[in-house]
């Protein structure tokens, strides 16, 4: 529907005169924080996606708590029933929340798909780059805003599952901070960070090239589909360590297992992960996959930086 645009009365100039300003500027670090916060607010502005993601997380939360409470057969204490890290791993997999799954892909797509393309197509580059803001700072602001927004959704489930598990294991408040348990939370948060950095850098790179946000969505949806097709071809061929060849979408579960020090046999016997029989070891596949992801992040960010740095705003 076209909208009639008229010059309204409120656009009258009252001749109040120009008022100057004392001109005091913030240091770069503060400017970076202020600007990142503004960008996060812009990403979070449309309320309905926010409500959808929060609702999804709440549903997961309810199911997880119920799952945790109903897990052990009656009369058997949790600590005898299943080791903490294994239980944590199983709940994370069940919830699907911190995995490289659909929710993360949707979140990153929503938050980052048009962050750069919008500026590029609206011509806002000329306004940003005529400010005392380096191209690297501009990218860092955009990247941090998207990553922070998505991480807030990805980390929260990992934290509340940790808290719920602690409650099931009869933790005292001080137990939550014991490195014996806390290391697993740190490992899971680190895993989440790795995955989100990968997705964010990839989506921003796409956003700097593509005209429409939904093009990014098509590529994001296509990638795991293609990955799983290739994976399903490799597994019957009994190719060793197939997930490494397919990429992050298939190998992320081994990174998490490696971070939480879950054994290969446990993966096969307790989690029915039959593909794990094809891997050399969890640590090998996990470390290789993590290295590949780090390399991909570096490549994506490098290309993105070179692209933005060499951009001429004509």
């Amino acid at each position: 529907m076209s909208r009639d645009i008229v010059e309204p009365e409120e656009a009258r100039i009252y001749g109040i005169g120009y008022r100057s300003w004392k001109r005091s500027f913030q240091p770069n670090s503060k400017r970076f924080l202020f600007l990142t916060w503004e960008e996060i607010k812009l990403i979070a502005r449309p309320r309905w996606p926010l409500y959808v993601f929060i609702s999804l997380r709440l549903i997961f939360f309810i199911f997880e708590v119920l799952g945790i409470l109903n897990a052990p057969p009656s009369g058997i204490p949790f600590e005898q029933y299943i080791p903490f890290k294994q239980f944590y791993f199983s709940r994370l997999i069940n919830s699907g929340s911190p995995m490289l799954g659909l929710t993360d892909v949707l979140l990153v797509f929503y938050a980052g798909s048009s962050v750069l393309s919008r500026d590029r197509l609206s011509g806002a580059y000329s306004l940003y780059f005529s400010r005392p803001l380096t191209r690297l700072e501009y990218l860092a602001v955009k990247f941090s805003a998207v990553a922070f927004y998505v991480l807030s959704f990805t980390w929260l489930p990992a934290i509340y599952i940790y808290l719920a598990l602690g409650s099931a294991y009869d933790f005292k408040p001080v137990d939550y901070l014991k490195w014996e348990y806390l290391q697993y939370l740190v490992a899971v948060l680190g895993y989440g960070l790795l995955i989100i950095l990968l997705l964010t850098s990839f989506v921003l790179l796409l956003s700097s090239y593509l005209k429409k946000g939904w093009y990014v969505g098509v590529i994001l949806v296509a990638l795991p589909i293609v990955s799983s097709i290739v994976y399903s071809i490799l597994v019957p061929l009994e190719v060793q360590n197939p997930s490494i060849y397919v990429g992050p979408f298939a190998s992320s579960i081994y990174i998490l297992a490696w971070f939480l020090d879950i054994d290969k046999t446990v993966l096969v016997e307790n989690f029915g992960l039959f593909d794990a029989t094809l891997i050399t070891s969890v640590s090998y596949v996990g470390s290789m996959s993590a290295s590949i992801i780090l390399a991909l992040i570096a490549v994506f960010l490098g290309v993105l930086f070179v692209r933005i740095r060499s951009l001429e705003v004509v």
Binding site: S122, G123, A124
Partner: peptide, 29 residues
Amino acid sequence: YVPENDSLQDNLNAVEVCKLFGIASGLSS
């Protein structure tokens, strides 16, 4: 700088535009 082309992000209002680029210029929030 006042550019010739539109340059303004459609999803912002005028206050937000000025605030955003004020912060980008080094002003506190």
